[in-house]
Structure formats: C-alpha cells, structure tokens
C-alpha cells in the first residue's frame, strides 16, 4: 500500500514515511506473542517503524513479558491521540473486539499505517473494513524468506515447531498445506 504518511509517536514527534514498501506497522498482541514463542520476534525489526499500542503493550507484558523486553529496541509504545471515530467504534463493537484490538485498529488508521498485524479473525475483518491492510504471524514468518532473514529450511523447521512451541492455533492439515507450499516455493 504505497502512500505518504506521517507517524505520530508517543512523545509527540512525527516520523515521515514515504517509501513504497511497508514501513509503518502496528502490532496487536497475537503476533508479538506467537513470534516470540517461535524465537522469531526479531523479524519485525526489519520494518522501519513498529508501533505497539498501550493496551497491547500491557497485554503482552502480562502474558509474555519477554516479548516486550525483546522488542524494546525496535518497537515504540504508543497511545492513540484521537478518540475512536463513531464509524470505527460501531465496526469494532459489531465484531466484539477486545480493547487491544480496538486500540491497534484506531492507531493503524490514525497513523495511516501500511500494515496491521493481528492473528484475530474478527479484528482482521474489522480492520479490513476500515481500509487497513492486515497480516498475521504466518505472513511475517514466510515473508522472512523473501527478505533473506531466514532460509526456507529454517522457516520449514519453524513451521514444524508451531504445534509444540507456540500457542498459535492452526489445524494440522492446514499447517501441512502451508509447509508444502513453502517447499514448492523453495524448489522454484
């Protein structure tokens, strides 16, 4: 989603983002926790700006404090500077979203983020209906091959470890399907 955007940071500074690639990313709790469980949280450091909303920060700090520790150097904790617009409020209520998801969508829209990361289905629906590009943990994991952060073999090993090492829910047959797609990609 190429665009010119201005990023408001928690300290009031603004950061210009004019690249055609994905630069500004807002994170919900799921991908932070899941990527950390898979020892892959550093994959997010390849984005120019990674924002973690206040509520998400607290949620991750409670459930997976080491993920917050590990993200401190490249992620910024942010508070929304605007009240949730009525249309977005209605959408988030319609999808029964939690506080962290609501704040993440609000910040992503407010900052014109290039990408919102969440593994929650309802949050993805709500964000997409608000015009925000959304991806989840697996997208970031597989993107790592193209960006040469991980080899295909490394990603395959991580995929195999998901059921035992992570709380990310993915049906075994679907995980197998994903694995086969990565293998096919690797062969080409």
């Amino acid at each position: 989603m190429p665009k010119n955007s201005s990023v408001k940071m928690s300290n009031g500074d603004c950061m210009a983002s004019t690249d055609t690639t994905i630069r500004l990313v807002v994170c919900d709790a799921g991908p932070l926790i899941h990527l950390d469980e898979l020892a892959c949280l550093d994959l997010l450091s390849s984005f120019a700006v990674v924002l973690i909303p206040d509520t998400v920060w607290e949620e991750v700090l409670y459930h997976r404090p080491q993920a917050i520790d590990a993200s401190q150097t490249w992620a910024k904790r942010v508070t929304p500077t605007r009240v949730l617009p009525p249309d977005l409020e209605a959408t988030t209520r319609l999808f029964s979203l939690h506080a962290g998801e609501i704040q993440a969508i609000n910040i992503a829209q407010e900052c014109q983020a290039d990408l919102l990361l969440t593994d929650d289905t309802a949050a993805r629906l709500a964000a997409a209906s608000a015009g925000i590009q959304v991806r989840g943990t697996l997208g970031i994991l597989l993107r790592a091959i193209q960006h040469q952060q991980k080899t295909a073999d490394e990603v395959l090993a991580i995929l195999r470890s998901i059921p035992i090492q992570s709380t990310l829910h993915i049906r075994a047959s679907l995980l197998q399907e994903v694995t086969e797609q990565v293998q096919a990609f690797h062969r080409t």
């Binding site: 690639t21 994905i22 289905t121 993805r124 629906l125 959304v134 991806r135 989840g136 943990t137 697996l138 997208g139 970031i140 994991l141 597989l142 993107r143 790592a144 091959i145 193209q146 960006h147 829910h169 993915i170 049906r171 679907l174 994903v178 797609q181 990565v182 990609f185």
Partner: peptide
C-alpha cells in the same frame, strides 16, 4: 475465515510485494 486469512498470508508472505 481464520483459515482463509492464513492462506492469504501464505501467498502474501511467499509472493507478495513487501
């Protein structure tokens, strides 16, 4: 729906422009 999103993520991750 969750699985549809995962499949979309796979396509984006492997073949997307990012």
């Amino acid at each position: 729906l969750a699985e549809k999103f995962i499949r979309e993520d796979v396509q984006w991750g492997l073949y997307g422009k990012h």
